[in-house]
Design a protein around this nucleic acid. Structure first.
Lengths: 345, 345
DNA sequence: AACGTTTGCGCAACTGTTTGCGGAAAAAAC
DNA sequence: GTTTTTTCCGCAAACAGTTGCGCAAACGTT
């Protein structure tokens, strides 16, 4: 069935398309009577504006690209939810572009954004992205860019990230404060910047407490399955740790069963803490103390920043220099760490 | 920076835009020499076709709408992955439209698809959708529609779903065959059709085995948290079940800790089985026997059906009558059900 | 009554790309 | 050397909607 256009309405009423266009957007040039008539007929004919045509004329698409390294059940669903809620209210739509952890695909996704003339790009880089190589398209486009989570520092774009170093540092400090002496860390892909930062925080906290940081207590797991294996080995070693830090949801869900199976009392013999989106720790058994890395909040902030950039338009003209927003994750104690002997009270 | 258009190239070479257009798509009308020259300049000027303009001219957008009830960490990430992989290879892009479990938003999402003139819509309905009310826009559009997972039967569209009744039936039959007598089921939202079907399969299997189906063994949980509570109550009751069926990933992740905390031996005193996307059961402790409801496969099939409908174009003209594809989930035994006393071997 | 202002609408050009048609020049056929 | 065919490219319209400009009619002011 042919879609009703603005011309159809105009013809029907014997008037000019431009009049219809103006009437529908309450332009004062059009008289109240005619305007009402036009609107009524438009509704009756189920008129819906054609976004593409509008775009073509005024060069402002209502599409925003979202490039993520992969669609996993961890973190990204929350981020997407946050992004969607903000964008939808502003009348923007999201086009999803997973890179499947491939640099090539990432570059292609940027190209797709270009071809679809998105109003802006929100992106989180794949794990293999270490340099700004092949990212020139991003500049050429002139569209605003906001990075989140997995970012590259040298780029002149806004970024929304977690306080990675500080989070790990606090987590470990909490373990130490509650009596742990031999702390192990299970980390994600060592190529990732967030892994590096969290590892640094981990090491620094141990060092600052005057404890020894042992290499055999540091593992890198690329998946939940690897985390399961790494945790198993840790617990089965001659001198198992009495505190374990899991870097992400993906890590904790994999490693927790291994820790539980070891038969150690939790948290008395072995404390556990992780950085999490905030859902899983409540579901696991036992419930795991965590630092709340709120994906929804990251998504919300990313989208809000995006909208601001789009609407202000301060992006393309001068050489924009991005600002980094860091989120400070609160500590949520659920029982896998010992309680602090509270001095007062 | 201004985007280079086909006109820019034409002007640069002192020729007509139409010539450039034809040259770029290897139209035989254009001489080999000129064609090469055009292509070279196009590459040099970083020319990228403007999708919107192309669409406007030939009425075929490369956008496909994906309407889901909600962006959760369960099932949908897999589905999206399957969909993306298929669509991307065919040159289509995905526009994400979560309905947040709201009927109103669902209708609006359909309208958004209409305005963006998507080539097709893939949708999974929200839990409150029981009738075809307000779904007339779907027909008016004339765009192909493929439903998946949460579907409405009376609609004349293709559908990709799981064998819900049969899955639950097999799961329960397996519990019974391995010695369970008092089987409880933890289900999702009772409004959902898949809940109803799985519940029916559950009941039928118990009935067919000549066992008693007790009302107090049937719970409906709207979230992981509710599932945790329901499982806790079940295990704490005077006569706890010796077999538990969890309808989804969301249910099992919530209820498993409660079951484990009850202290019962698994699977000797209490067997557990669930329907799952296939990731979680391996991560949980203990690993849970499940029927593999493969979200990736659902997504893949949905997208493939979509492409076929778009390309064949057999959709809009005659009154299309959808076909339903049912996926048969395999049983994966991971240890929370007792082993069948194999007669042979 | 003559002039200035406001109101209300139409005309036409423009966005980037595609495509049917037409036509000049070159090549081929006679 | 003329006619026919082929090769190669330009012209212009079309897609749906927006917008600067123009212009007539109605209104308001001396």
């Amino acid at each position: 069935m042919k879609r009703t256009t603005i011309k159809d309405i105009a013809q029907q009423l014997g008037i000019n398309p431009s009049t219809v266009s103006r009437a529908l957007k309450d332009h004062p040039d059009i008289g109240a009577a005619l305007r009402a008539e036009i609107k009524q007929l438009a509704a009756q004919m189920h008129y819906r504006p054609n976004h593409m045509a509008v775009y073509l004329r005024q060069r402002s698409s209502k599409l925003v690209g979202l490039i993520v390294p992969e669609v996993t059940m961890f973190f990204y669903p929350s981020v997407m939810k946050g992004i969607q809620n903000v964008l939808h209210d502003a009348g923007y739509n999201l086009i999803m572009l997973p890179s499947n952890e491939s640099l090539e695909r990432e570059v292609e996704n940027i190209r797709i954004c270009y071809e679809n003339d998105v109003a802006g790009i929100m992106l989180s880089f794949s794990r293999y992205r270490h340099t700004t190589e092949q990212l020139s398209t991003l500049e050429e486009m002139g569209a605003p860019v906001v990075m989140f989570d997995k970012i590259i520092e040298d780029l002149p774009y806004d970024a929304i990230i977690l306080e990675d170093f500080q989070s790990a540092y606090s987590a470990i400090s909490h373990l130490i404060a509650t009596g742990c002496k031999k702390i192990a860390g299970i980390f994600g892909n060592p190529d990732l910047r967030i892994t590096q930062l969290r590892l640094d925080g981990f090491k620094q906290a141990i060092k600052d407490a005057g404890l020894e940081c042992r290499d055999e207590y540091i593992c890198f797991s690329n998946s939940s399955y690897e985390a399961e294996r790494d945790a198993r080995h840790l617990m089965a070693s001659a001198d198992p740790p009495d505190g374990i830090f899991a870097m992400t949801d993906e890590i904790i869900i994999g490693s927790l069963p291994s820790i539980v199976r070891s038969g150690k009392n939790i948290p008395e013999e072995c404390s556990i803490i992780c950085i999490s989106d905030g859902f899983l720790p409540y579901c696991l058994h036992p419930k795991v103390t965590f630092l709340h890395h709120d994906g929804y909040e990251v998504g919300k902030l990313t989208a809000q920043r995006m909208l601001k950039l789009i609407e202000d338009g301060e992006f393309s003209n001068n050489n924009y220099k991005g600002t980094v927003t860091m989120l400070k994750p609160p500590l949520i104690e659920l029982g896998t760490t010992r309680t602090l002997k509270s001095s007062t009270k």
